[in-house]
Design a protein around this nucleic acid. Structure first.
Lengths: 127, 127
DNA sequence: GATACATTACCACGACCGTGTCAAGGTTAG
DNA sequence: CTAACCTTGACACGGTCGTGGTAATGTATC
């Protein structure tokens, strides 16, 4: 009984069923299937889905980026190539690159939440 | 004299000056600056720029994805969080997730090159 | 001091991302 | 056998990515 269908999983994790399928396609949480092809989410996968939301929010990470990380963990070839690239000639001490683009990233995210999110979701108590 | 300006670097690497600035913003190749603020590309950075093109092409990696990889290498916090997430409950043996989305990725890329790229770039040796 | 570069900032544009919704068809349970 | 789920596929839509421009302004070189 510890295997939920998409909509059940959606409700307990906060994602939409649509996004659960999308997340599956990105290779991040891939549930098993029933004989008929229904997605069956195990408790572990449900937990992963919940922490996924936190991970993305906490570090301004995009789903596609995490998908890439997933790819690197499973594709040895890719991981090697990326590592090799980064390890060639850092040349100079790389001084201070981060601060500027970091502000950029943050602004990007603020624009996103400002646009996507339904504005003022909790004004439930109006005296 | 081994430090080129943007346009010089652009010519020897095959990127456009515009893209060199973009790549810098993504944190991938960050050249030093002259006192007046001109970008100065060292030989090592030029090499990185050339291999960057190959890396992206060979493994269907997007600039933003590699930017994320760069972020993970420098942001210990982020790297830890991502690693922790992946390490929690792989639940089932994860069977066979890759094959399907991989086709998806490839198609994505083919659409891209079909649209963006100038067709038939190297037919240099005819007959 | 004019010509040829550099810099940043902004507009444009097609393709993709993250989402929602709907359609057409298969499954499962009362 | 119908109602309530599930599946995949497609259209839509605002926002970002990757890329090219242009404009306004600063710097180097002759």
């Amino acid at each position: 009984m510890d295997a939920l269908t998409v909509h059940e999983a959606a409700q307990t994790t906060g994602w939409s069923a649509r996004m659960l399928r999308y997340i599956e396609r990105a290779g991040l949480v891939v549930p098993q299937r029933s004989p008929a092809g229904y997605r069956l989410y195990s408790p572990g996968e449900l937990q992963r889905l919940r922490t996924l939301r936190e991970l993305l929010d906490a570090h301004q990470v995009a789903l596609s980026e995490l998908g890439f990380a997933s790819r690197m963990r499973t594709d040895d070839d890719l991981r090697g190539a990326v590592q090799a690239w980064f390890d060639t000639q850092p040349a100079r001490p790389t001084e201070v690159p981060a601060s500027d683009w970091l502000r950029w990233e943050q602004e990007k995210h603020q624009r996103l939440i400002a646009a996507t999110r339904t504005p003022i979701p909790q004004l439930t108590e109006i005296a």
